[in-house]
């Protein structure tokens, strides 16, 4: 019952998705979490170019475990997105299209998602060994000194996510809970 979507996105694909949709993503995404976001924000402030062109791209909030010999990547589940909220609207304004993480986004991020016709996916927090199997290659492209927090380019295949905030202002964390709430 999952939809298959290629990333980076085509705009029509984003507009066709709705909160609650289960999606399998295939293509390229970039990893970044707290420290990498902080550095990217400093670059933006200085007017310096970012380590990758964010236009139409997807950022995955993750800090993987070290790969064992023979592994492409260690366990790689999502981290809490709200810690990146402060930096996100600026990236969305620069053309970033999607984010994969877990947990609530701020009102400001949600507004920016609608304004920029972007999308926020939830991956399953703690499902890190399973998620790693859909990561086919990894390349550190910037901030190598940050270790687990470096920016990595990932080739993914059938990476399982659920749409949380769609481009139309829907929010699964609100609607899903309302549907099952009994107190």
């Amino acid at each position: 019952m999952s939809k298959h979507i290629q990333v980076p996105f085509k705009k029509e694909d984003i507009l066709a998705l709705r909160s609650g949709d289960r999606v399998l993503l295939t293509g390229t995404v970039y990893t970044a979490r707290d420290a990498a976001h902080k550095r990217m924000a400093e670059q933006i402030e200085k007017g310096a170019p970012l380590p990758f062109d964010v236009e139409n791209q997807v950022i995955y909030y993750v800090g993987p475990t070290p790969a064992k010999p023979g592994q492409v990547i260690g366990s790689a589940g999502p981290t809490t997105s709200s810690r990146m909220d402060k930096f996100t609207p600026a990236l969305l304004d620069m053309g970033l299209r999607g984010m994969i993480g877990k947990g609530y986004r701020s009102e400001e991020v949600k507004k920016s998602i609608v304004k920029n016709q972007a999308i926020y996916f939830g991956a399953i927090g703690g499902s890190a060994a399973l998620i790693s199997r859909s990561i086919k290659s990894v390349e550190v492209i910037a901030y190598d000194d940050l270790g687990t927090e470096a920016i990595r380019k990932l080739e993914i295949e059938n990476f399982p996510v659920v749409v949380i905030n769609d481009a139309h202002g829907n929010d699964l964390y609100r609607e899903g809970v309302e549907k099952y709430r009994q107190i």
């Binding site: 800090g63 260690g74 366990s75 589940g77 499902s127 890190a128 060994a129 199997r133 099952y180």
Partner: peptide, 29 residues
């Protein structure tokens, strides 16, 4: 009761299986 909820639980069961069999951490944190 929720289909998505069931899907999440099934994935967590599968995830735990993979972690044990392949000797890798179940979560990256």
């Amino acid at each position: 009761q929720s289909e998505t909820g069931k899907e999440v639980l099934s994935q967590l069961i599968e995830n735990a299986d993979i972690a044990t069999k392949q000797r890798v951490p179940m979560c990256q944190d």
